[in-house]
């Protein structure tokens, strides 16, 4: 098996995540799909790091994780405040900027 297969797996996971963002309407699930896409990118970075034989890809994946953690904190805070004001976790209900 060639490690390129990891790239195929990453592409597949990324596609599944992107499709999930398109078809789901629950904010939290959409957010989880974004996390899945970030993870797929991380897998691709790690596989590239192995293919190229240096650690730069792993560094990038590490930074991706940090940014993902920060993003999750802010995103979930936004979801909580959205739910407080609208009493719904559906992205369709948040069609107006103001209540």
């Amino acid at each position: 098996m060639n490690p390129v297969n990891y790239l195929y797996l990453a592409a597949l996971l990324f596609t599944i995540g992107a499709t999930g963002v398109l078809i789901r309407r629950n904010v939290i699930v959409v957010f989880m799909c974004i996390e899945l896409m970030l993870n797929a990118c991380n897998l691709a970075f790690v596989a590239f790091s192995r293919l190229h034989g240096n650690l730069d890809g792993q560094i990038i994946a590490f930074f991706t994780m940090v940014v993902a953690a920060a993003e999750v904190v802010v995103g979930l805070a936004i979801i909580v405040s959205l739910f407080r004001s609208r009493h719904s976790a559906s992205v369709d209900d948040a069609s107006l900027m103001k209540l």
């Binding site: 996971l13 996390e35 993870n39 991380n42 897998l43 790690v46 792993q58 590490f62």
Partner: peptide
């Protein structure tokens, strides 16, 4: 999703990214 992430962690280990 948590299960998928754990499997990805195993893949990182297999790819030599022990810290990640």
């Amino acid at each position: 999703l948590a299960g998928t992430m754990i499997i990805l962690a195993v893949f990182y280990l297999a790819n030599g990214a022990y810290f990640l």
